[in-house]
């Protein structure tokens, strides 16, 4: 088990249990009572820690090496998944996966960022940072889904779109912009779920939909806390502060109306019980799709545009007839 720095009290308790069990095996002493007590205190400590997570701790959890990634959820939630490769232009991007699948027997299209599960795979997957090809592959698959009237599900988990030389050469900005434009106009239901990291344009590039949901221990922001710290504080040491200021947690994002739904995770994070997490996600997707199917394609598109149009905060001064400007709080 891997423990994060703030899980230190938990780690200590697990170490104690481990030592007790070792001792009991060696000395043939019954320690079950002590173990039970320790187990209880683990549960208590865990709840305490997880009830009071700071924004930065959520960022840490979203990056936990044991956290389930897109392909894990695909395997657990869908059947008959056929992965489809390539953007039909340049290459296949391993940081973005997608394909046709069945959800409760119903055909859907799934696309998502994919991170690697070990050092070798992490490199192959480019740490979940997609190139333009990834966004274009995603769009190709989404267009096909639209053509055959299949709902689209996107799973978002990226530290950002890849800032590379070739990525720029092949139009990273254009690829993301195009996806935003096209996703707004998709005639089929589109559901986007942030399952890990939701960094900036790289996340938004597959993140425009009828329903956008965040899992509990994820973050969604215009920039990662580290980069924000380095730019605004001119130092890497303010990442905790930046994480707070950026208001990047599910609580803030849903209270702002920037995401529609929240998907709970088990206490201890998605990685503590991946199967249960997948089940929760499946229930969410199932319900969301059946709700969205009740709405006509045109209405869905209109609602999507209306929802996005309302995002923003500003003051709107109105000059009244008598010439005195009045202040009204605009929509947020």
């Amino acid at each position: 088990m891997q423990f994060l720095d703030f899980e230190k009290p938990l780690e200590d308790l697990y170490t104690q249990i481990h030592k007790l069990k070792e001792m009991s095996a060696k000395n043939k002493v019954d320690v079950s009572n002590s173990v039970r007590e320790l187990d209880a205190s683990i549960e208590k400590t865990r709840s305490q820690i997880y009830d009071n997570l700071t924004p930065w701790q959520r960022v840490q959890l979203s990056r936990h090496p044991d956290r389930p990634y897109t392909l894990y959820y695909i395997e657990k939630i869908f059947t008959n998944f056929t992965e489809l490769y390539g953007d039909r232009q340049v290459k296949d991007d391993k940081a973005m996966v997608g394909g046709m699948a069945l959800l409760n027997g119903e055909p859907v299209m799934v696309v998502g960022h994919q991170k690697g599960i070990n050092t070798k795979m992490r490199q192959l997957r480019n740490f979940g940072m997609a190139n333009p090809e990834g966004y274009r592959k995603a769009l190709r698959l989404m267009k096909m889904a639209e053509k055959f009237n299949r709902p689209i599900i996107t799973l978002i988990d990226t530290p950002g779109a890849f800032p590379g030389l070739e990525a720029e050469e092949r139009g990273q900005a254009e690829a993301i912009a195009r996806n935003l434009f096209e996703m707004v106009n998709m005639k089929v239901p589109v559901i986007c779920v942030i399952i890990g990291e939701g960094a900036s344009g790289g996340a938004l590039g597959i993140g425009v939909g009828d329903r956008v949901a965040m899992m509990e221990n994820t973050w969604y922001s215009v920039i990662s806390p580290e980069s924000c710290s380095s730019i605004l504080w001119r130092s890497w040491n303010f990442k905790e502060k930046a994480a707070e200021q950026l208001k990047l947690t599910y609580k803030d994002m849903s209270s702002f109306g920037l995401v529609d739904d929240i998907i709970p995770e088990p206490v201890g994070g998605a990685h503590s019980d991946p199967e249960k997490t997948a089940e929760t996600l499946k229930t969410y997707l199932t319900n969301a799709i059946s709700a969205l199917k009740m709405i006509s394609p045109d209405d869905r598109i209109t609602q999507r545009i209306e929802k996005l149009s309302k995002m923003g905060f500003y003051d709107e001064t109105v000059t009244a007839d008598n010439g005195t400007p009045a202040q009204i709080d605009a929509i947020t």
Binding site: G201, V222, L232, M253
Partner: peptide
């Protein structure tokens, strides 16, 4: 950056 995710969403909003 000082408008965090609100500024990010302007991308989707303007595209929409």
């Amino acid at each position: 950056m000082m408008e965090s995710a609100f500024s990010l969403m302007q991308m989707a909003k303007t595209a929409a």
